[in-house]
Amino acid sequence: MAGPFIHLSGVNKVYRTRGEEFLAISEATFDVDVGELVSLVGPSGCGKTTLLKVIAGLHPYDGGELRIGSQTHPFDPSRDIGMVFQQPLLLKWRRIVDNVLLPAEILGLPMAESRERARDLLTLVGLAGNENKYPYELSGGMQQRAAIARALIHDPKLILMDEPFGALDALTREKMNLELLHIWREARKTILFVTHGISEAVFLGTRVVVLTASPARMADNFQVDLPHPRTLDIKTHEVFGQYTRRIYRLLGME
């Protein structure tokens, strides 16, 4: 191994509003290996979304070290990030396949190949046959699947997901969790997954990073030793319960 894919060490982020300073991220320190699916879990206000945006290069940070890419896996910040948000944010006036193609268009990738790839990805996320529909013709869960396909179209090495299933109903959410694990295994991407769902964080993550709010602080970072492929019944396992209890305790909810 030539070092971790993502390396954070003592990363801080300070917000200044009306002369006051407050620390949105404090001393974030963790590594992510290639191919990991790391959950960032914490209550609102813990800076998890901010951290994701710092890693995406959208916000500057104040001190500390942030490095993405390794010798074996070089990282190009302009084309190796795929993003998924809480809302699908599909363009209403584009058909699903053309929505998926948006990043390819922006990067100027060859269109014929990308179009083929878009079809494959839509099959991967379970939307085969919906290529030519408009977003309003799909349910919220299906729209989010399209958003995931869009994040994968330019074959980025890193997928950043910001509470992507937060707006879905509980059952759809569970289903999407399973789907995401399937997509992750097939696409072989490194994924950072921000959530405030504790059981979701444990169920999805190969590793969980726990952040607490006021003061914003990184509270824990542990490996989740549950076998893959995971199915919903691991949620009833003793080990699963131990992990979730560990997080509840850190968040002061026990």
Partner: peptide, 22 residues
């Protein structure tokens, strides 16, 4: 949508692309 702008920004999209496509 600000998030949509972020998405384009991570791809280093130009202002013209934001204008014409979004």
């Amino acid at each position: 949508e600000p998030d949509l702008l972020d998405l384009v920004r991570t791809l280093k999209g130009s202002r013209w692309q934001i204008f014409a496509k979004i």
